[in-house]
């Protein structure tokens, strides 16, 4: 707790990281927000996402499973060992050969190594751990892994991103590539760079994952939302993270 407050005291050069380099049109979703919401994200004492980070910090050293092991048993101090990790997910899990996102990775660690049950999707515990791990990469550049296996997953994600779906017959690209910067009713349309997940959405009054955001958008275009942890959701996340390569991690971000 105390340590977290101390971290909170250190001002972050976040604003500089939000904009990609010169000549690059990519913009973090934060740059589309009102100055008030930007201020909420920038101040760690006010950012409600920091509550999830504090949750995750407590869980990091809480034993789980029959052997009573905690994350610390293998990974030690997350501030050293988890630095940059979130910037590299989704990645291929060597055992199953499938792509997993950060929350999937945390649950694999629990079931395989700790003998503990997987944490429920979108629960406060899993979001807290993901936020705490993500927080260790804040300010670092997104650097998705390379390799043929990941390329195949990203290609599948790209196909999903451009595929029209739902009763309104929209693709992700129809809004986020073709019409970013304009408005959907009152809401600005951002470029859909997943730089700050898990993030605190004021609309949700809670911290949520990128997959929850996908489900929101899909319900919006009246498509059938993907279940949590589905291959489609992970493929789309892998594509979007590659699309945001080089942008700064903002976890825990705040969005309206």
């Amino acid at each position: 707790m105390r340590r977290l407050v101390a971290i909170a005291g250190v001002a972050l050069g976040l604003a500089a990281g939000l904009q990609a380099s010169r000549g690059d049109e990519r913009r973090s979703g934060a740059t589309f927000m009102s100055p008030q919401t930007q201020a909420l994200q920038a101040d760690d004492a006010a950012n409600p996402g920091m509550l999830s980070v504090a949750d995750g910090q407590a869980q990091w050293s809480t034993p789980a499973g029959p052997n009573g092991t905690a994350c610390t048993a293998c990974h030690g101090d997350a501030r050293d060992t988890m630095r940059g990790v979130a910037a590299r997910y989704p990645a291929i899990d060597a055992v199953s050969g499938k792509a997993v996102d950060l929350m999937g990775r945390i649950n694999l660690c629990r079931t395989r190594n700790m003998g503990a049950p997987a944490l429920p999707a979108e629960g406060a515990e899993l979001l807290g751990l993901a936020a705490y791990v993500g927080f260790q990469s804040r300010g670092l550049r997104i650097a998705p892994p390379t390799g043929a296996a990941m390329d195949a997953v990203r290609d599948a994600g790209r196909a999903l991103y451009t595929r029209r779906q739902g009763q309104l017959d929209f693709s992700c690209a129809a809004c986020h590539d073709d019409n970013w910067g304009r408005r959907l009713a009152a809401a600005p349309i951002p470029q859909a760079h997943p730089t700050g997940y898990p993030l605190y959405r004021l609309e949700w009054q809670a911290t949520g994952s990128l997959q929850r955001r996908f489900r929101n958008c899909m319900t919006g275009v009246r498509a059938e939302p993907w279940p949590y942890g589905s291959d489609e959701a992970i493929a789309l996340e892998a594509f979007l993270m590659d699309r945001a390569r080089g942008m700064a991690v903002e976890t825990p971000a705040v969005r309206p």
Binding site: V5, A8, A45, P48, L51, D55, A58
Partner: peptide, 27 residues
Amino acid sequence: GRALINVPPKARKGQVIDIKALVSHPM
């Protein structure tokens, strides 16, 4: 749930200080 408190550790007598408090609650 959890609370995040921000109080300066030191202050001069008579100084105006900022205090921030954030608490988790479903409301």
